[in-house]
Design a protein around this nucleic acid. Structure first.
Lengths: 205, 205
DNA sequence: CAATCAATCCCCTAAAAACAGGATATTGGG
DNA sequence: CCCAATATCCTGTTTTTAGGGGATTGATTG
C-alpha cells in the first residue's frame, strides 16, 4: 500500500517541486496540497494522509503551531517539517510539537524519500545539515524564560521603561525590576543593549 | 524564437518546481540550472540564456554579488531575483546591481511567466508584494548615521557602557554620550532598548 | 507533603543613561 | 575659501538601570 503524502506550503514553486520530485516514486501517493493552515485543517476533516510535509512559515499561522494542532487531533499522521532555514530553535520546536522529521528545502529527492520512509517507520529523520545544527547548538545559549518574563522582555524591546511596564501590566515597578534582573541573569548579559541583542538572535523578539 | 531560461538556485525543490511550472509554457526554453555561483559562471562561458532566475542566497556567494558579476560580463542577460524574503534592502540591492526584476518564491506560474516576458521587453518586474514593500519602505525609516556613530552603535550593541566605549575609542566619555544622544535622535527613540531594536530591524547590526 | 518554580513585592546604593544646552576643532566638497 | 557636517569636549540635572540583599503567595509536581 502506498504512503499517502500531503503538503502544506504557500510557495507554488515548492509544491510543484516536491510533486515533481515525488511523482514517479513508487510507493508514494500524492494526495494534494494546502497553501495555509486553515485549508490544511479543513482538508484533514475529509481525508487523512500518512505523512504531511509542512512548511514552517505559513501565511495564517506558524507551521510550529499547526504541527501541534494536527498532532493533537490526528495522532497517526506523521509530520515532516520543511524549511529553508537551518535554525536550531525551529527544529527543536517542531520536534517538541510532535513532528517526526525536519527536511531542508535544498534536500535531494533521495533525502526526501528517505525522510518519508523513515517517519513512516516511526523513526525520527533530520536532514544532514539540520542534524549538524542540532548537535552544534544543542547546548543552546537560548535561556528558558517564563511567560511573564517574555512579556516584560517584549515591552523592554519596545522601549518602555520599568515604570511604564509596571503601569501597563498593573504590577509594581519593583516586580518589573526583578523580572528584568532575572532576564539579565538568564541571558548572562549585563545591560539592556546586550539583552535586546541576544533576544533578537534567539528570535524571541 | 523561444526565450532561453536558466536558473541558479541551490534548492532542488525550487529548481524542480520552476521547471515543472514552466515546462509546458510555450515560448520558453529551459536551458538548465546551476546550484551555486561558480557553476553558473562556468556555464555562462559556454552558453548564454536570455533570462536568469537567480536566488538571493547561494552557498558560495550572495545572489546580489553574482548578479553584478554576470551583468558586468554579459550585458544582454536579464536577471530576475528570486527569494522567499520580501525584504526591501535585498530588492533594492538586486536592482542596483543590474537585476531587471524580483519575484517571490510564492509566485504563481502566471506571475513567473509575466516576469520573464516583461524583463525580456526591457521592463522592470516586481512581484506584487515586493512592489508593496518597496513603496512602503521607500521613505525608509533607516536614518543616515555617520561612520563614527555606527562604530559607537556597534559597541553599544555589544553591551559596552559609555565608559568602556570611551576607553576603546580613545575619546572622552562625553563624546560617546553625544554620539549616543545623536543616535537616539536619529532613530527617533528614547532609550537603548529601542535603539538596538530599530538598528537590528534596519540591519545595521 | 515537601520542594520547586513562578510571580509578586520590598529596601538600598551606585552606576549608567537620558536630557538640556552649550562650545570648539577639523575637514571635505561646492 | 567658506560652509556645513562631523567629531570632539564640557557642565549640569533628572531619570532609569544594575546589582545586592531579601520575603510572600500560589501553583505544580514528584
Amino acid at each position: 500500500m502506498s504512503i499517502k503524502i500531503f503538503i502544506v506550503d504557500d510557495h507554488y514553486m515548492i509544491v510543484e517541486g516536491i510533486r515533481s520530485l515525488l511523482q514517479y516514486q513508487k510507493g508514494l501517493e500524492w494526495m494534494g496540497h494546502a497553501m495555509n493552515a486553515a485549508s490544511c485543517m479543513a482538508y484533514l476533516q475529509q481525508q487523512q494522509p500518512d505523512v504531511i510535509l509542512m512548511d514552517i512559515n505559513l501565511p495564517d499561522k506558524s507551521g510550529i503551531d499547526l504541527c501541534k494542532e494536527v498532532k493533537s487531533k490526528y495522532k497517526n499522521i506523521h509530520i515532516v517539517g520543511l524549511s529553508s532555514y537551518n535554525q536550531q530553535s525551529f527544529i527543536q520546536k517542531m520536534l517538541e510539537n510532535g513532528a517526526s522529521g525536519y527536511v531542508l528545502k535544498n534536500a535531494t529527492r533521495e533525502e526526501l524519500v528517505d525522510a518519508i520512509e523513515m517517519v513512516m517507520e516511526g523513526k525520527i529523520f533530520l536532514s544532514n545539515e539540520a542534524e549538524l545544527t542540532v548537535q552544534k547548538n544543542d547546548n543552546s545559549k537560548t535561556p528558558i524564560i517564563t511567560r511573564r518574563e517574555k512579556e516584560v522582555l517584549l515591552l523592554i524591546a519596545n522601549g518602555l521603561t520599568n515604570n511604564e511596564i509596571a503601569l501597563k501590566l498593573f504590577i509594581s515597578i519593583t516586580t518589573v525590576e526583578t523580572h528584568r534582573k532575572n532576564l539579565l541573569a538568564k541571558f548572562e548579559v549585563k545591560n539592556t543593549a546586550s539583552l535586546i541583542r541576544m533576544a533578537t538572535q534567539c528570535q524571541l523578539i
